[in-house]
Design a binder for these strands. Sequence first.
DNA 1: CCTATTACGGACCCGCAATATCCATAATAA
DNA 2: TTATTATGGATATTGCGGGTCCGTAATAGG
Lengths: 163, 163
Amino acid sequence: MQFSKSTDYALHALIHLAQAESHKNIGVRELSTILSVSESYLSKIMAKMRKDGIVRAVPGVKGGYELAKSAENITFLEVIQAIEGRQQMFECSNLNSKQHQLLAELNRTERSTKTKTTDRGECLVKKVMDGAEQHLHQYLREHTIQSVLDQAIKHCGHSTNKK
Amino acid sequence: MQFSKSTDYALHALIHLAQAESHKNIGVRELSTILSVSESYLSKIMAKMRKDGIVRAVPGVKGGYELAKSAENITFLEVIQAIEGRQQMFECSNLNSKQHQLLAELNRTERSTKTKTTDRGECLVKKVMDGAEQHLHQYLREHTIQSVLDQAIKHCGHSTNKK
DNA sequence: CCTATTACGGACCCGCAATATCCATAATAA
DNA sequence: TTATTATGGATATTGCGGGTCCGTAATAGG
């Protein structure tokens, strides 16, 4: 139950891109030295984000990467999903276990009266876990690359104000 | 970023234990057939929960497992942590990267005036992720084995009331 | 006391995904 | 044309999740 190192690299790379001037491409070489990671590996990470429309790339001399949209429109959630994929956090492997059959029996009475296919034999454990995932996603949707930058500025500004 | 199958097994096993009569030990054999998983593997899972005080075990003939405390006192969080461990969801591998040094520079001005060791060079990305983890934990703390059982009963009762 | 049953713990194996590297190719600025 | 840069494929390596096996200890019942 851990986020991969790739996610870590991706987020930090994006923050660096966001700090740079707009329309100034930044190469993998520069990013990799800053993040202390190999160029080849970082390339794969950037490629994933490119496919998901988070960054834009231009090849050739003076090429590199830039954000494909504004930093406040890049949420933590989409970055994580670009890197880690979109599979569910919890998968119920007991779909045809006796416990589910029992659960189905309880629901059967309800179904016989209502004949609705909704809520058919859904695992209650999975329902809780899905709820947890939704909560997590909501939080991650509310935090963007820009919000981190703002936080950094606040930190800095806070000290000058204090002075 | 997925929960292991072991967690799935653990939760379903606990629900079965909670449904059983109190003070009636249930063997791994019975649990394993219900969950469609091997005895040897489930043993490891039960052992982890035993070490964390979630279930109690008695060896010997007629031995088996029972809940170590009431079902409403067993939260999803502690079950998950018993199985998956307590490492943080997000680990920042760039602790001495240039990006963090930059972040430290911003904080240095503040520190020079306040000389506080709190908030020293903390990665802002990690702060967001830690926040996400706390949110997730809070949700998982609010859901217990008993709450799943209640939900099941409500489902059942709902249909009879409808009738 | 003996035996069957059960939990406990260690050693071990397997497959896969995360991590990481290398190279050949295409695109582009100068 | 050349140097630079992203792209994508092929290929290790390694750690971990998932899983099995077996020897030991504990306990109930005869």
